[in-house]
Write a protein that binds this DNA or RNA. Structure first.
Length: 257
DNA sequence: ATTGTGGCCTGCCCGC
DNA sequence: TGCGGGCAGGCCACAA
């Protein structure tokens, strides 16, 4: 999916719909509704006026004068507001805008919003439980990261990917951050010293800011080396490709400890 | 409770 | 050119 950086772009894109009223919801993919019947959500949505566009982690929130609308984008979801998309290409996503992949379409009194998601892993939820999300990675503090890592025996990477602990990081951002900070993703999350937690928190914040400026989660320094047989862009050592936290992981055995 | 695994979906890319 | 296999930025249910 788009990670925190892309969802923040979507949030800015969605700002113009604040103040608009939902007139119709012609498309709602049942697959993304967690068992709730499309008609049920449609009935609740029609007539609502959007009051704010927020983001927590990878969750886009549209507040209204009724329930809050939560939009998730899965791995391939893109947001199109008033028929224009700011991100027209996603790493690993399809490069076309096929209307057959529209999973959510909302028509307002003026203009529209749609989620185009070939792989159908995103979804819509009303009044999502925000308590299930950890501190937002873009501004995470030392102490928030320390409590997110806790004394966990799980790997550092899996803990950083766990949205209940730290919200917003996906596979690419975690690999980039750990590579920059020089941590082995397989280390126990609870095994970091206080100084290491401080260094990691700073690297997370800096990396998110840096890649935001560059234009996306896929613009990291490690990214060009995310392929078999590649070498570390920092020290030239052969990169290691393995599964950590259930995800494909690239790491440098020479400088990530 | 915590941690790891498998599966959901579909498009794309590579090699034969 | 066509086909099959492997891959994918997320998340959830489930099992140990």
């Amino acid at each position: 999916m788009p990670e925190l950086i892309e969802i923040e772009t979507y949030r800015r894109q969605a700002e113009p719909v604040v103040g608009r009223t939902i007139a119709a919801v012609p498309t709602l993919d049942p697959l993304g509704l967690r068992g709730v019947h499309p008609e049920e959500i449609r009935a609740e949505l029609i007539g609502l006026t959007v009051t704010a566009a927020r983001r927590i982690g990878k969750l886009l929130l549209l507040d209204t004068d009724g329930p809050t609308i939560g939009l998730r984008f899965g791995m391939t979801g893109r947001l199109i507001v008033d028929d224009s998309a700011e991100i027209d290409r996603l790493e690993y996503g399809a490069n076309r805008d096929d209307r057959a992949w529209d999973r959510t379409v909302v028509e307002f009194d003026r203009g529209s919003l749609r989620v185009n998601d070939p792989r159908r892993l995103g979804g819509v939820e009303l009044d999502p439980d925000l308590a299930r999300l950890g501190a937002d990675a873009a501004s995470i503090t030392d102490s928030a990261l320390a409590s997110a890592l806790g004394d966990s025996a799980a790997t550092l990477k899996s803990r950083l990917l766990d949205q209940r602990r730290v919200a917003g990081l996906g596979n690419l951002l975690v690999d980039e951050t750990l590579w920059r900070a020089g941590f082995d993703p397989r280390r126990a999350a609870g095994g970091l010293t206080a100084a290491e937690v401080t260094r990691l928190a700073a690297t997370i914040v800096d990396t998110v800011a840096d890649l935001t400026q560059r234009g996306g989660s896929h613009t990291g320094d490690l990214q060009p080396a995310r392929e078999r047989g590649a070498s570390c862009p920092r020290d030239g050592a052969p990169l290691d490709r393995r599964t950590v936290g259930g995800r494909t992981t690239y790491l440098c055995p020479a400088h990530q400890r």
